[in-house]
Nucleic acid binder design. Structure first.
Length: 593
DNA sequence: GCCGTTTTCGGCCCGACTGTTTTCAGTCG
C-alpha cells in the first residue's frame, strides 16, 4: 500500500481536478477565475511530459512554465502531487457535494443549473436527477420548464446508454500504463491486449490482457500490485481481475506458449466471429477452442493438436487468409478470407500527412512552427494548418484579413525550412476549417478559399436542424468548388452528443459526384466517420482523409485511432488521400494544384 | 487567477441558440 499513496498522478487526473474546480467556481458566479483554471487544465491535458515528474525533478518554479500557471495554481498542483489531495478542492466539493462528472455529461446541464438542482431538490447523482425529473419536480423550478425536464430525461437516457463503456483513447492510456508496469517483470514472453481493444472498437468495455509466461504466479502478483490498480476482484493461478484507478476493469490471463495463437484468437473475438471459426473447424472434422485447433477424436476428450501457436496457422489450417483483428465483426470477413478477397488494409505506418490541425491562431495551444516540428518528429511529410473561422467566435476564428496574414507566415516558414532541409522536405499547407453557415454557405469568401491548399468545411452550430435541412445545408457546402474535405461529417461526440440528423448515403453520393473528400476525424471522442460509413464510402469509391484534429503537438498520437477506424471500415492505403505525397494528394483535391 | 511592446492594474476568445422569459440566463462551442 505504501507505494500506492505516493503513486504518481497522471496529467489527466490533475487536469480533471482543475477543471472540476472551474465548474465549482462557475457556480459561485465569480468572473474570470473559472477560465483561468480551465485554461491550465487544457494545457496540462495536452502536455506530453508528466507534470508530476516535472514538479518532482525541477520543483514548483518549473510549474510556472506551464502557460496559465501562476503562484496560486502552482501551489495547488504541488499540494495535489505531493499529498494526493487538495484542500481547496475538497472545500468546494463539500459545499456542493454532487457527482459533477456524470451530471455535466447530461447535455444542457451546466454548473449553474446543477447548483440549483442540488439546492432546491438535493440532486447529487444521475439517479437523483432521474427521480426528480420523472416526478415532475424540475419543471416547477424557477428557470426550468416542461421542455427542460424533457431534455434532461433525454440526456439521462443517452448518458446511460453508454453503459460503462470507455473511449478507445482512454483505454489506450490505461493499457500503456499496464504494459509499462509489466515490462519490468522477468519471465514475460509476450504481452497482448486482446478483446474489443485489439479489434479497436470505438468504445471498450474492459481491458483483456493475454500474457505468455512460464511463471504465472509472478505475473499475477505483479499485475494485482500495479500502482494504477484500485481494487482486486479476483486473483487466481492463471487469471486475475482488477478495477483500475480510471474506473476501467482489466482481466489478465496467462497461457503457455503452445496455446498462444489459439488464446489470442479466442480472446480477441468477436464472439460471433469465433463461432463462425468453430463451425468451419467442425465442418473439417476439427475442434477449435482457446487452447488450440485439434483433430476431433470421439473416444478421447481431445485429439491431436494441429495448430495453436500462432493465429496465422489456425486461419491457414481452416482454409482462410489471415483476418486482421479490426475486421473480426462478422461483416463478411469470413467469406472474403475464404475467397482470398480481403482488402489489403491501410497500415499503421502509412500516413504521410495530416490535413486537420489547429494552432494558437485560434483554439490550439501551439504555434504553427511547433506543430510542424512535432509532425516532422513523427515522420510526417506535411500538415495542413486548418484554424477555425470567424463564425466560431469563441475560438477567435480567423476572418479574411487574419487568414491572409497566416498564409504569409506559412510561406515564410516553408521558405526558411527549405533553406534548412533542402526542397521537398517538409511542407506546411495553407488550410482552413471553414464553418458551414445555416444556409450551407461558407464562412470565408471564395477568393480567399481559392488561395488555400486545403479547404476543410464543417458544421459547428444548429445541430438540431431537421434531417432534410441539415443534409441540404451540408450538400450545398460540398458543392462549393473550393470545399475539398468535409470535416467530422456527423458531428457526434461519443457518449456526449448524438450525430446530427443527416442522410449519410446522400452525403456519400454527393461526395462521389463532387470529388469531395470525407474525413475520418481521429480524436477518440469523435471517430467521425464511423466504421460503417467508412465502408459505405469505400464501396462507392469516395476518397477519405484521416486527420488528428490536433490542438497541441502531443495530439498527433491520435492518428492511430483514425487509422484503426479506417481499417474497421475496410479501407486500403489507396482510399486515404494523405497516404500519398503532398503533391499527389493536392492533385487529387478539387482545385487540383 | 493570470498576464504585460498596455508591467503591478485592468483587462480577460464572445456570438448563437434554447428555453425561459417578456428582456434574459445558461450552455455550448
Amino acid at each position: 500500500m505504501g507505494d500506492k499513496l505516493s503513486r504518481h498522478m497522471t496529467n489527466q487526473e490533475i487536469a480533471k481536478t482543475l477543471s472540476n474546480i472551474a465548474e465549482y467556481l462557475e457556480m459561485t458566479d465569480v468572473p474570470f477565475k473559472p477560465r483561468a483554471y480551465v485554461r491550465v487544465a487544457e494545457a496540462i491535458a495536452a502536455m506530453s511530459e508528466s507534470v508530476d515528474r516535472l514538479y518532482r525533478e525541477k520543483g514548483a518554479s518549473a510549474l510556472r512554465s506551464i502557460p496559465g500557471v501562476g503562484a496560486s495554481i502552482a501551489e495547488h498542483i504541488k499540494e495535489l502531487v505531493t499529498t494526493g489531495h487538495l484542500a481547496y478542492y475538497d472545500q468546494l466539493k463539500k459545499k456542493t457535494p454532487v457527482d459533477l462528472e456524470t451530471l455535466t455529461a447530461v447535455e444542457g446541464l451546466g454548473p449553474k443549473k446543477i447548483k440549483v438542482l442540488y439546492e432546491k431538490l438535493r440532486v447529487r447523482t444521475l439517479a437523483d436527477l432521474e427521480r426528480v425529473a420523472k416526478a415532475g419536480k424540475i419543471k416547477k423550478l424557477e428557470g426550468f420548464g416542461e421542455k427542460s425536464e424533457e431534455n434532461i430525461l433525454k440526456g439521462i437516457a443517452f448518458v446511460k446508454s453508454s453503459g460503462g463503456r470507455f473511449l478507445l483513447g482512454d483505454a489506450m492510456r490505461e493499457a500503456k500504463q499496464i504494459e509499462l508496469g509489466l515490462q519490468k517483470i522477468p519471465g514475460i514472453h509476450s504481452f497482448d491486449i486482446v478483446g474489443s481493444f485489439r479489434r479497436r472498437k470505438e468504445t471498450i468495455g474492459d481491458i483483456d490482457i493475454l500474457v505468455v509466461s512460464d511463471r504465472p504466479h509472478v505475473i499475477m502478483e505483479a499485475f494485482t500490485n500495479l500502482p494504477n490498480v484500485a481494487r482486486v476482484y479476483a486473483k487466481g493461478d492463471t487469471k486475475s481481475m482488477v478495477r483500475l484507478q480510471g474506473g476501467i476493469d482489466a482481466d489478465l490471463r496467462v497461457v503457455p506458449q503452445e496455446s498462444y495463437g489459439a488464446a489470442l484468437s479466442y480472446f480477441t473475438g468477436s464472439k460471433d466471429h469465433n463461432i463462425a471459426l468453430r463451425k468451419i473447424a467442425i465442418e473439417k472434422k476439427l475442434k477449435l477452442n482457446e487452447y488450440g485447433l485439434f483433430a476431433s477424436d470421439k473416444r478421447k476428450a481431445t485429439g491431436k493438436m494441429i495448430a495453436g501457436k500462432t493465429e496465422e496457422e489456425i486461419y491457414a489450417k481452416l482454409g482462410l487468409d489471415f483476418i486482421p483483428p479490426e475486421l473480426r465483426e462478422m461483416g463478411g470477413e469470413i467469406e472474403a478470407a475464404k475467397n482470398h478477397t480481403l482488402p489489403k488494409l491501410i497500415g499503421y505506418e502509412d500516413l504521410r500527412g495530416d490535413l486537420q490541425t489547429q494552432t494558437n491562431w485560434t483554439d490550439g495551444n501551439a504555434s504553427i512552427e511547433e506543430m510542424a516540428k512535432e509532425a516532422i518528429k513523427r515522420g510526417l511529410e506535411y500538415i495542413a494548418i486548418t484554424d477555425h473561422t470567424k463564425r466560431l467566435a469563441m475560438t477567435h476564428g480567423l476572418d479574411a484579413r487574419r487568414i491572409v496574414e497566416q498564409m504569409k507566415e506559412i510561406d515564410n516558414l516553408n521558405a526558411t525550412s527549405d533553406k534548412r532541409h533542402g526542397k521537398g522536405k517538409f511542407r506546411i499547407l495553407k488550410g482552413t476549417e471553414c464553418d458551414i453557415l445555416r444556409d450551407g454557405s461558407l464562412d470565408l469568401p471564395d477568393e480567399i478559399l481559392r488561395q488555400l491548399d486545403v479547404v476543410g468545411v464543417s458544421v459547428h452550430s444548429l445541430f438540431n436542424l431537421s434531417r432534410e435541412d441539415q443534409t441540404k445545408r451540408i450538400v450545398r457546402a460540398m458543392r462549393n468548388p473550393h470545399a475539398d474535405i468535409l470535416f467530422h461529417p456527423t458531428g457526434r461526440l461519443i457518449h456526449k452528443r448524438e450525430p446530427y440528423a443527416v442522410d449519410m448515403s446522400e452525403i456519400i453520393d454527393v461526395a462521389r459526384e463532387t470529388n469531395t473528400v470525407l474525413e475520418v476525424d481521429a480524436l477518440s471522442e469523435r471517430l467521425d466517420l464511423k466504421d460503417e460509413h467508412i465502408r459505405m464510402a469505400v464501396q462507392k469509391g469516395v476518397k477519405l482523409a484521416i486527420d488528428s484534429d490536433a490542438h497541441a503537438p502531443s495530439q498527433f498520437s491520435v492518428l492511430e485511432f483514425g487509422i484503426a477506424q479506417a481499417r474497421r471500415g475496410w479501407a486500403t492505403r489507396e482510399d486515404i488521400i494523405n497516404t500519398f505525397s503532398a503533391e499527389k494528394m493536392l492533385s487529387m483535391l478539387k482545385d487540383g494544384r
